[in-house]
């Protein structure tokens, strides 16, 4: 709905891609691992290979969980904005078709949190 206002009420979105100096904001959350209170956000270069996103920024944070080391990435199940997504690990963020402010989630079957309790 339009905002009721005393005059024309139109604005530029504050977080358009071009405001991020060439980076593309990607969110990622690890389902079944609530030790991490929320998904996190990273400004990534679009040419960053997906595998480097995992091994770099994601590992830095998620690596604190005992489940992280030794994840079989071939069996990980991903979604992008709620829809199924199959990343090509060697391809870049852009070549994987990811765009600014996409929200990724992944599940790691067999690794279901502390004592398998989803935490």
């Amino acid at each position: 709905m339009a905002v009721k206002a005393i005059d024309t009420y139109e604005f530029e979105p504050a977080d358009k891609a071009e405001n991020f100096h060439g980076a593309c904001v990607i969110y990622a959350g690890w389902d079944g691992h609530l030790l991490f209170s929320s998904p996190y956000a990273w400004p990534l270069p679009p040419d960053l290979p997906f595998a480097h996103f995992i091994a770099g920024p994601m590992a830095e944070i998620f690596g604190q969980h005992p489940d992280w080391a030794g994840i079989d990435w071939n069996s990980a199940v991903w979604t992008r904005n709620g829809e199924a997504f199959a990343p090509d690990m060697q391809a870049s963020i852009a070549a994987n078709g990811l765009s600014h402010k996409d929200a990724l989630r992944f599940r790691t079957p067999g690794r279901d949190g502390l004592n398998g309790a989803g935490i």
Binding site: G29, D31, Y40, W42, G82
Partner: peptide, 30 residues
């Protein structure tokens, strides 16, 4: 957790709330 949390566009709280009735799944709407 030193990374920047993903936040809700309206309340601006980090996306830490779980699905109503499912306390082990984080809630996200788009």
């Amino acid at each position: 957790a030193t990374a920047v949390p993903m936040q809700c566009q309206v309340c601006q709280i980090p996306m830490m709330f779980t699905e109503p009735g499912d306390p082990l799944t984080l809630c996200q709407r788009h």
